[in-house]
Amino acid sequence: MEIDPFIFRLSIFILSIFIGYYVVWSVTPSLHTPLMSVTNAISSVIIVGAIIAALAGSSSNVFDISSIFGFLAIVLAAINIFGGFLVTQRMLQMYKKKKEKNK
């Protein structure tokens, strides 16, 4: 009997939780705020689902009821992606500046 592909995805999921567990414990506490903003940014990779949904509309009818939800999700996820990565960058930049000044 063949193994359901779902099991493979479940394996990836569970192993990723373990990776997350060890990686996050190694994050230095002083960077916990950037950690939150960057996890926020990467969880917006949900935009791939939004793009698929948005492109599902036919060429004659770009905005059908399901693609509208896709487009809305694209806007929300894009705010997060740009906002999340940029604000993280801004924060991390501050950690750099003073080090240089100090030395």
């Binding site: 995805r9 990836i12 999921f13 569970i14 990723s16 939780i17 990776i19 997350g20 567990y21 990686v23 996050v24 950690l35 996890t39 926020n40 990467i42 969880s43 990779v45 949900i46 791939v48 689902g49």
Partner: peptide, 12 residues
Amino acid sequence: ALIITGALVGSS
């Protein structure tokens, strides 16, 4: 990508 990210963010 989404499954890995979700697991990372969830455990984080």
